[in-house]
Amino acid sequence: MLHTPASPAAPDAGQLLSVTAVPGTRPGSVFVEVTGEVDAHTAPVLDACLHSQTRRRGVHEVVVDLSQVAFLGAAGITALAQAHRRCRMRGARLVVHTGGERRLLRALQLTGFADLVAVDPTELEPQVRGPRTAARPRPRPRQAPIRRPRRVCR
């Protein structure tokens, strides 16, 4: 665990957050389980763990399980975004599981992070595809404007 000096006003990060990294079921994958609250005080612990896992040789996929997270603040989303950037630089993929928790999904969608990475992908999804994004509607062909007679008020 990462030990940092804490100010008297800061809560103890060890009591609020647990981050565990284990090898994934597929070769080249790492599973990171996060439990507790991820806020400005605890996000450095998550960032340190994700940083160490994304730098490992042979890692092609980092799966972050947030289903046991009670609170995900902006600092936590920033740590995930930095991990996503490091993964992309190394040719790896970051996957985030929320366990269907609406408050987590909402935070990831509002920040636009859900558009960058695979959030709660189904197991049937092939691993070769990139992040899941919403399909864009096809543009309609332009139609000539309808000419209507002008009304003149007198």
Rank of each mutant, 00 (worst) to 15 (best):
T35S: 09
G36K: 04
E37A: 04
D39R: 06
A40M: 15
H41W: 15
H41C: 15
T42P: 02
T42M: 01
A43H: 07
A43G: 03
A43I: 08
P44Q: 12
L46D: 04
L46A: 09
A48C: 01
C49I: 14
C49Y: 03
L50T: 07
L50A: 07
L50H: 11
L50K: 10
H51Y: 10
S52D: 14
Q53V: 14
T54C: 14
T54Y: 12
R56L: 15
R57I: 07
R57P: 08
H60I: 10
V62P: 09
V63F: 11
V63N: 08
V64H: 09
D65F: 10
L66E: 11
S67E: 13
S67D: 13
S67C: 11
V69E: 11
V69S: 08
A70K: 10
L72R: 11
L72K: 05
G73L: 07
A74C: 14
A75C: 15
A75T: 07
A75V: 13
G76R: 07
I77L: 11
T78D: 13
A79T: 04
A79D: 09
L80F: 07
L80H: 02
L80A: 02
A81H: 01
A81M: 04
A83I: 01
A83R: 02
H84K: 08
R85D: 01
R86D: 05
C87T: 08
C87K: 03
C87E: 01
R88S: 13
R90F: 00
G91W: 04
G91C: 00
A92C: 07
A92Q: 03
R93Q: 12
L94V: 07
L94P: 04
V96Y: 03
V96T: 12
V96S: 11
V96I: 15
V96K: 05
T98G: 08
T98S: 05
G100F: 02
E101D: 15
R102N: 02
R102C: 00
R102H: 05
R102A: 06
R103P: 02
R103S: 04
L104S: 06
L104K: 08
L104M: 08
L105Y: 00
L105W: 00
L105R: 03
L105E: 01
L108P: 07
Q109Y: 00
Q109A: 02
Q109D: 05
F113T: 05
A114I: 11
A114E: 12
D115F: 09
L116E: 06
L116A: 09
L116Y: 01
L116V: 05
V117P: 02
V117L: 03
A118V: 02
V119D: 00
V119G: 01
V119A: 01
V119Q: 00
V119W: 00
D120N: 01
D120S: 00
T122M: 02
T122N: 00
T122K: 04
E123M: 09
E123I: 11
L124G: 09
E125D: 10
E125W: 12
P126W: 14
P126S: 15
V128F: 15
P131Y: 07
P131W: 05
P131R: 13
P131Q: 05
R132P: 03
R132S: 08
T133G: 10
T133I: 06
T133E: 03
A134D: 10
A135N: 12
A135S: 15
P139T: 14
P139F: 11
R140Y: 10
R140V: 14
P141E: 03
R142V: 06
A144N: 04
A144I: 07
P145M: 02
